[in-house]
Design a protein around this nucleic acid. Structure first.
Lengths: 153, 153
DNA sequence: TGAGAAGTCTACAATAAATATAGACAAAGC
DNA sequence: GCTTTGTCTATATTTATTGTAGACTTCTCA
Protein backbone atom coordinates (compact mmCIF):
# COMPACT_ATOMS: atom_id res chain seq x y z
CA UNK A 1 0.00 0.00 0.00
CA UNK A 2 1.54 3.27 -1.09
CA UNK A 3 1.18 6.34 1.12
CA UNK A 4 -1.01 9.39 0.61
CA UNK A 5 2.18 11.30 -0.08
CA UNK A 6 2.80 9.31 -3.23
CA UNK A 7 -0.81 9.54 -4.29
CA UNK A 8 -0.93 13.29 -3.73
CA UNK A 9 2.32 13.65 -5.62
CA UNK A 10 0.90 11.76 -8.58
CA UNK A 11 -2.27 13.83 -8.48
CA UNK A 12 -0.30 17.07 -8.40
CA UNK A 13 1.99 15.97 -11.21
CA UNK A 14 -0.96 14.73 -13.22
CA UNK A 15 -2.61 18.11 -12.89
CA UNK A 16 0.54 19.94 -13.90
CA UNK A 17 1.11 17.66 -16.87
CA UNK A 18 -2.48 17.93 -17.99
CA UNK A 19 -2.63 21.70 -17.70
CA UNK A 20 0.08 22.46 -20.20
CA UNK A 21 -1.15 25.99 -20.88
CA UNK A 22 0.19 27.08 -17.51
CA UNK A 23 3.90 26.90 -17.07
CA UNK A 24 4.03 27.71 -13.40
CA UNK A 25 1.77 26.57 -10.59
CA UNK A 26 1.14 27.92 -7.11
CA UNK A 27 1.02 25.44 -4.22
CA UNK A 28 -2.33 26.88 -3.19
CA UNK A 29 -3.71 26.43 -6.69
CA UNK A 30 -2.71 22.79 -6.92
CA UNK A 31 -3.90 22.11 -3.40
CA UNK A 32 -7.33 23.53 -4.05
CA UNK A 33 -7.80 21.99 -7.49
CA UNK A 34 -6.76 18.52 -6.45
CA UNK A 35 -8.17 18.64 -2.93
CA UNK A 36 -4.88 18.18 -1.12
CA UNK A 37 -4.10 19.77 2.27
CA UNK A 38 -1.97 22.76 1.36
CA UNK A 39 0.68 22.46 4.02
CA UNK A 40 1.06 18.78 3.37
CA UNK A 41 1.37 19.34 -0.35
CA UNK A 42 4.06 21.90 0.35
CA UNK A 43 6.36 19.24 1.76
CA UNK A 44 5.48 16.84 -1.03
CA UNK A 45 6.36 19.30 -3.79
CA UNK A 46 9.61 20.05 -2.03
CA UNK A 47 10.51 16.39 -2.05
CA UNK A 48 9.71 16.21 -5.74
CA UNK A 49 11.94 19.19 -6.32
CA UNK A 50 14.78 17.59 -4.37
CA UNK A 51 14.39 14.55 -6.58
CA UNK A 52 14.73 16.58 -9.73
CA UNK A 53 11.15 16.11 -10.84
CA UNK A 54 10.01 19.68 -10.20
CA UNK A 55 11.71 23.05 -10.25
CA UNK A 56 10.59 26.20 -8.49
CA UNK A 57 10.89 29.94 -8.41
CA UNK A 58 10.17 32.16 -5.44
CA UNK A 59 8.48 35.50 -5.39
CA UNK A 60 5.67 37.04 -7.44
CA UNK A 61 5.07 35.15 -10.67
CA UNK A 62 6.92 32.21 -9.19
CA UNK A 63 5.70 28.76 -8.34
CA UNK A 64 6.43 25.17 -9.28
CA UNK A 65 6.92 23.75 -12.73
CA UNK A 66 7.83 20.40 -14.20
CA UNK A 67 11.58 19.93 -14.53
CA UNK A 68 11.12 17.35 -17.29
CA UNK A 69 8.55 16.51 -19.91
CA UNK A 70 5.75 14.24 -18.64
CA UNK A 71 7.02 11.51 -20.95
CA UNK A 72 10.38 11.62 -19.16
CA UNK A 73 9.04 11.03 -15.66
CA UNK A 74 8.18 7.49 -14.66
CA UNK A 75 5.61 6.68 -12.02
CA UNK A 76 8.30 4.58 -10.39
CA UNK A 77 10.55 7.59 -9.94
CA UNK A 78 7.75 9.55 -8.30
CA UNK A 79 6.72 6.78 -5.93
CA UNK A 80 10.32 6.00 -5.02
CA UNK A 81 10.81 9.60 -3.94
CA UNK A 82 8.46 8.86 -1.06
CA UNK A 83 8.55 5.11 -0.49
CA UNK A 84 12.28 4.62 -0.88
CA UNK A 85 13.10 1.53 -2.86
CA UNK A 86 9.95 -0.46 -3.40
CA UNK A 87 11.03 -3.43 -1.31
CA UNK A 88 8.20 -5.59 0.03
CA UNK A 89 10.38 -6.72 2.93
CA UNK A 90 12.95 -4.75 4.85
CA UNK A 91 15.82 -7.12 4.13
CA UNK A 92 15.45 -6.29 0.44
CA UNK A 93 15.82 -2.59 1.05
CA UNK A 94 19.17 -1.12 0.09
CA UNK A 95 18.80 1.81 2.43
CA UNK A 96 19.24 1.91 6.18
CA UNK A 97 19.32 -1.14 8.45
CA UNK A 98 18.53 -3.65 5.78
CA UNK A 99 19.00 -7.07 7.29
CA UNK A 100 16.34 -8.81 9.33
CA UNK A 101 17.93 -9.70 12.67
CA UNK A 102 16.07 -12.97 13.20
CA UNK A 103 16.91 -14.48 9.84
CA UNK A 104 19.18 -17.48 10.20
CA UNK A 105 20.61 -17.35 6.69
CA UNK A 106 19.59 -14.35 4.69
CA UNK A 107 21.27 -15.48 1.53
CA UNK A 108 19.08 -18.52 1.14
CA UNK A 109 15.91 -17.23 2.81
CA UNK A 110 13.00 -18.42 0.68
CA UNK A 111 10.79 -15.55 1.77
CA UNK A 112 13.36 -13.07 0.59
CA UNK A 113 13.82 -14.81 -2.75
CA UNK A 114 10.12 -14.89 -3.48
CA UNK A 115 9.49 -11.35 -2.30
CA UNK A 116 12.32 -10.12 -4.48
CA UNK A 117 10.51 -11.51 -7.52
CA UNK A 118 7.22 -9.97 -6.48
CA UNK A 119 8.78 -6.61 -5.70
CA UNK A 120 10.56 -6.56 -9.03
CA UNK A 121 7.34 -7.31 -10.84
CA UNK A 122 5.65 -4.43 -9.04
CA UNK A 123 8.48 -2.00 -9.69
CA UNK A 124 8.80 -3.00 -13.34
CA UNK A 125 5.27 -1.89 -14.04
CA UNK A 126 5.74 1.47 -12.34
CA UNK A 127 9.08 2.01 -14.05
CA UNK A 128 7.62 1.32 -17.45
CA UNK A 129 4.86 3.91 -17.19
CA UNK A 130 5.41 7.66 -17.45
CA UNK A 131 3.20 10.56 -16.40
CA UNK A 132 2.32 11.02 -20.05
CA UNK A 133 1.30 7.37 -20.33
CA UNK A 134 -0.82 7.67 -17.23
CA UNK A 135 -2.74 10.63 -18.59
CA UNK A 136 -3.16 9.03 -21.95
CA UNK A 137 -4.45 5.89 -20.35
CA UNK A 138 -6.94 7.87 -18.32
CA UNK A 139 -8.13 9.75 -21.38
CA UNK A 140 -8.45 6.55 -23.34
CA UNK A 141 -10.53 5.05 -20.58
CA UNK A 142 -12.71 8.14 -20.46
CA UNK A 143 -13.45 7.96 -24.15
CA UNK A 144 -14.06 4.24 -24.04
CA UNK A 145 -16.64 4.70 -21.33
CA UNK A 146 -18.13 7.64 -23.13
CA UNK A 147 -18.71 5.46 -26.17
CA UNK A 148 -20.32 2.76 -24.13
CA UNK A 149 -22.70 5.33 -22.72
CA UNK A 150 -23.46 6.67 -26.19
CA UNK A 151 -24.37 3.24 -27.40
CA UNK A 152 -26.54 2.35 -24.49
CA UNK A 153 -28.55 5.54 -24.50
CA UNK B 1 6.00 -3.43 2.51
CA UNK B 2 4.36 -6.47 4.08
CA UNK B 3 3.90 -6.64 7.84
CA UNK B 4 5.81 -8.73 10.37
CA UNK B 5 2.65 -10.78 10.78
CA UNK B 6 2.93 -12.02 7.21
CA UNK B 7 6.63 -12.65 7.54
CA UNK B 8 6.23 -14.53 10.80
CA UNK B 9 3.42 -16.55 9.25
CA UNK B 10 5.63 -17.52 6.34
CA UNK B 11 8.46 -18.43 8.68
CA UNK B 12 6.17 -20.58 10.81
CA UNK B 13 4.66 -22.30 7.79
CA UNK B 14 8.09 -22.79 6.28
CA UNK B 15 9.25 -24.49 9.44
CA UNK B 16 6.19 -26.71 9.58
CA UNK B 17 6.51 -27.65 5.92
CA UNK B 18 10.19 -28.35 6.23
CA UNK B 19 9.85 -30.47 9.36
CA UNK B 20 7.66 -33.16 7.85
CA UNK B 21 8.61 -35.77 10.45
CA UNK B 22 6.48 -33.97 13.00
CA UNK B 23 2.80 -33.85 12.35
CA UNK B 24 1.81 -31.53 15.15
CA UNK B 25 3.56 -28.40 16.42
CA UNK B 26 3.30 -26.48 19.67
CA UNK B 27 3.09 -22.71 19.51
CA UNK B 28 5.98 -22.48 21.94
CA UNK B 29 8.11 -24.78 19.81
CA UNK B 30 7.57 -22.78 16.63
CA UNK B 31 8.07 -19.50 18.47
CA UNK B 32 11.40 -20.57 19.92
CA UNK B 33 12.73 -22.24 16.79
CA UNK B 34 11.89 -19.35 14.50
CA UNK B 35 12.51 -16.54 16.98
CA UNK B 36 8.99 -15.20 17.01
CA UNK B 37 7.35 -13.63 20.10
CA UNK B 38 5.15 -16.43 21.42
CA UNK B 39 2.04 -14.42 22.20
CA UNK B 40 2.22 -12.67 18.87
CA UNK B 41 2.62 -15.92 17.01
CA UNK B 42 -0.41 -17.22 18.84
CA UNK B 43 -2.65 -14.70 17.11
CA UNK B 44 -0.95 -15.29 13.79
CA UNK B 45 -1.50 -19.03 13.85
CA UNK B 46 -5.11 -18.46 14.79
CA UNK B 47 -5.58 -16.28 11.74
CA UNK B 48 -4.01 -18.95 9.58
CA UNK B 49 -6.40 -21.47 11.07
CA UNK B 50 -9.39 -19.23 10.38
CA UNK B 51 -8.21 -19.01 6.80
CA UNK B 52 -8.11 -22.76 6.41
CA UNK B 53 -4.34 -22.97 6.16
CA UNK B 54 -3.76 -24.59 9.53
CA UNK B 55 -5.77 -26.88 11.75
CA UNK B 56 -5.40 -27.37 15.48
CA UNK B 57 -6.16 -29.67 18.37
CA UNK B 58 -6.34 -28.68 22.00
CA UNK B 59 -5.14 -30.60 24.97
CA UNK B 60 -2.20 -32.93 25.54
CA UNK B 61 -0.68 -34.16 22.30
CA UNK B 62 -2.41 -31.33 20.49
CA UNK B 63 -0.98 -28.42 18.60
CA UNK B 64 -1.09 -26.96 15.11
CA UNK B 65 -0.69 -28.80 11.84
CA UNK B 66 -0.90 -27.93 8.18
CA UNK B 67 -4.41 -28.25 6.82
CA UNK B 68 -3.10 -28.76 3.29
CA UNK B 69 0.03 -30.02 1.63
CA UNK B 70 2.74 -27.36 1.23
CA UNK B 71 2.30 -27.59 -2.54
CA UNK B 72 -1.34 -26.59 -2.12
CA UNK B 73 -0.72 -23.38 -0.19
CA UNK B 74 0.28 -20.31 -2.16
CA UNK B 75 2.31 -17.50 -0.67
CA UNK B 76 -0.42 -15.18 -1.90
CA UNK B 77 -3.02 -16.94 0.23
CA UNK B 78 -0.84 -16.60 3.31
CA UNK B 79 -0.05 -12.94 2.80
CA UNK B 80 -3.65 -12.10 1.96
CA UNK B 81 -4.73 -13.56 5.29
CA UNK B 82 -2.96 -10.63 6.92
CA UNK B 83 -2.76 -7.87 4.33
CA UNK B 84 -6.26 -8.25 2.92
CA UNK B 85 -6.35 -7.96 -0.82
CA UNK B 86 -2.96 -6.84 -2.02
CA UNK B 87 -4.14 -3.47 -3.31
CA UNK B 88 -1.44 -0.80 -3.59
CA UNK B 89 -4.05 1.93 -3.20
CA UNK B 90 -7.16 1.91 -1.07
CA UNK B 91 -9.57 2.55 -3.94
CA UNK B 92 -8.51 -0.80 -5.42
CA UNK B 93 -9.38 -2.66 -2.24
CA UNK B 94 -12.61 -4.64 -2.37
CA UNK B 95 -13.01 -4.62 1.38
CA UNK B 96 -14.29 -1.83 3.59
CA UNK B 97 -14.51 1.81 2.57
CA UNK B 98 -12.91 1.39 -0.79
CA UNK B 99 -13.32 4.65 -2.68
CA UNK B 100 -10.98 7.56 -2.27
CA UNK B 101 -13.12 10.55 -1.30
CA UNK B 102 -11.11 13.16 -3.14
CA UNK B 103 -11.07 11.42 -6.49
CA UNK B 104 -13.05 13.32 -9.09
CA UNK B 105 -13.72 10.37 -11.36
CA UNK B 106 -12.60 7.05 -9.99
CA UNK B 107 -13.46 5.11 -13.11
CA UNK B 108 -10.97 6.95 -15.23
CA UNK B 109 -8.35 7.78 -12.58
CA UNK B 110 -4.97 7.15 -14.17
CA UNK B 111 -3.33 6.45 -10.83
CA UNK B 112 -5.83 3.73 -10.13
CA UNK B 113 -5.40 2.17 -13.57
CA UNK B 114 -1.63 2.05 -13.30
CA UNK B 115 -1.63 0.83 -9.71
CA UNK B 116 -4.04 -1.93 -10.65
CA UNK B 117 -1.49 -3.22 -13.14
CA UNK B 118 1.33 -3.02 -10.64
CA UNK B 119 -0.69 -4.65 -7.90
CA UNK B 120 -1.72 -7.47 -10.21
CA UNK B 121 1.88 -8.07 -11.19
CA UNK B 122 2.83 -8.30 -7.53
CA UNK B 123 -0.04 -10.59 -6.63
CA UNK B 124 0.53 -12.84 -9.65
CA UNK B 125 3.98 -13.71 -8.44
CA UNK B 126 2.82 -14.53 -4.94
CA UNK B 127 -0.13 -16.53 -6.23
CA UNK B 128 2.08 -18.61 -8.48
CA UNK B 129 4.43 -19.73 -5.73
CA UNK B 130 3.55 -22.31 -3.08
CA UNK B 131 5.16 -23.07 0.26
CA UNK B 132 6.74 -26.12 -1.37
CA UNK B 133 8.16 -23.94 -4.15
CA UNK B 134 9.56 -21.52 -1.62
CA UNK B 135 11.38 -24.24 0.29
CA UNK B 136 12.68 -25.81 -2.87
CA UNK B 137 13.93 -22.49 -4.08
CA UNK B 138 15.72 -21.89 -0.81
CA UNK B 139 17.31 -25.32 -0.90
CA UNK B 140 18.38 -24.82 -4.50
CA UNK B 141 19.99 -21.54 -3.58
CA UNK B 142 21.75 -23.14 -0.63
CA UNK B 143 23.28 -25.83 -2.83
CA UNK B 144 24.23 -23.37 -5.51
CA UNK B 145 26.13 -21.29 -2.99
CA UNK B 146 27.66 -24.37 -1.47
CA UNK B 147 29.10 -25.30 -4.84
CA UNK B 148 30.52 -21.87 -5.37
CA UNK B 149 32.25 -22.14 -2.04
CA UNK B 150 33.62 -25.60 -2.88
CA UNK B 151 35.12 -24.33 -6.09
CA UNK B 152 36.73 -21.28 -4.60
CA UNK B 153 38.32 -23.05 -1.65
C1' DT C 1 -13.32 -37.51 37.20
C1' DG C 2 -9.98 -34.29 37.80
C1' DA C 3 -5.33 -32.41 36.86
C1' DG C 4 -2.65 -30.59 33.59
C1' DA C 5 -1.70 -29.50 28.73
C1' DA C 6 -2.70 -27.08 25.11
C1' DG C 7 -5.16 -23.66 22.12
C1' DT C 8 -8.62 -19.38 22.34
C1' DC C 9 -10.15 -15.03 23.52
C1' DT C 10 -10.34 -10.12 25.29
C1' DA C 11 -8.12 -6.30 26.61
C1' DC C 12 -4.58 -3.24 26.52
C1' DA C 13 0.27 -1.20 26.43
C1' DA C 14 4.01 0.58 23.84
C1' DT C 15 5.94 2.08 19.72
C1' DA C 16 6.22 3.79 15.37
C1' DA C 17 4.61 5.82 11.32
C1' DA C 18 1.59 8.56 8.50
C1' DT C 19 -0.91 12.60 8.14
C1' DA C 20 -1.53 17.18 8.92
C1' DT C 21 -0.85 22.02 10.91
C1' DA C 22 1.48 26.40 12.71
C1' DG C 23 4.41 29.80 12.28
C1' DA C 24 8.80 31.83 11.43
C1' DC C 25 12.12 32.51 7.63
C1' DA C 26 14.27 33.58 2.98
C1' DA C 27 14.36 34.96 -1.60
C1' DA C 28 12.54 37.29 -5.51
C1' DG C 29 10.08 40.93 -7.96
C1' DC C 30 8.02 45.37 -8.49
C1' DG D 1 10.69 48.20 1.26
C1' DC D 2 6.43 45.77 0.67
C1' DT D 3 4.27 41.83 -1.12
C1' DT D 4 4.39 37.38 -2.98
C1' DT D 5 5.83 32.97 -2.89
C1' DG D 6 8.56 29.00 -1.71
C1' DT D 7 11.46 26.89 2.44
C1' DC D 8 12.26 25.24 6.85
C1' DT D 9 11.57 23.59 11.77
C1' DA D 10 8.81 22.02 15.07
C1' DT D 11 4.93 19.79 16.67
C1' DA D 12 0.21 17.92 17.02
C1' DT D 13 -3.06 14.23 15.79
C1' DT D 14 -4.37 10.03 14.40
C1' DT D 15 -3.90 5.34 13.17
C1' DA D 16 -1.67 0.94 12.63
C1' DT D 17 1.65 -2.24 14.08
C1' DT D 18 3.83 -4.89 17.31
C1' DG D 19 3.83 -7.04 21.40
C1' DT D 20 2.12 -8.48 26.32
C1' DA D 21 -1.00 -10.13 30.23
C1' DG D 22 -4.17 -12.96 31.96
C1' DA D 23 -8.42 -15.34 32.16
C1' DC D 24 -10.96 -19.04 29.76
C1' DT D 25 -12.07 -23.32 27.19
C1' DT D 26 -11.37 -27.73 25.49
C1' DC D 27 -9.09 -31.95 25.39
C1' DT D 28 -6.50 -36.12 26.90
C1' DC D 29 -5.11 -39.40 29.93
C1' DA D 30 -4.19 -41.34 34.19
Amino acid sequence: MISMRSKYALKALGYMSRTSEKESFLIADIAQTEGIPKKFLEAILLTLKNNGILSSRKGPGGGYSLAKAPAQVTIGAVVRAFEGDLAPVQCLSESASASCPECADEDTCGIKLVMADAGNAFASVLDSVTLADMLQRSEFERQRRQQVVDFTI
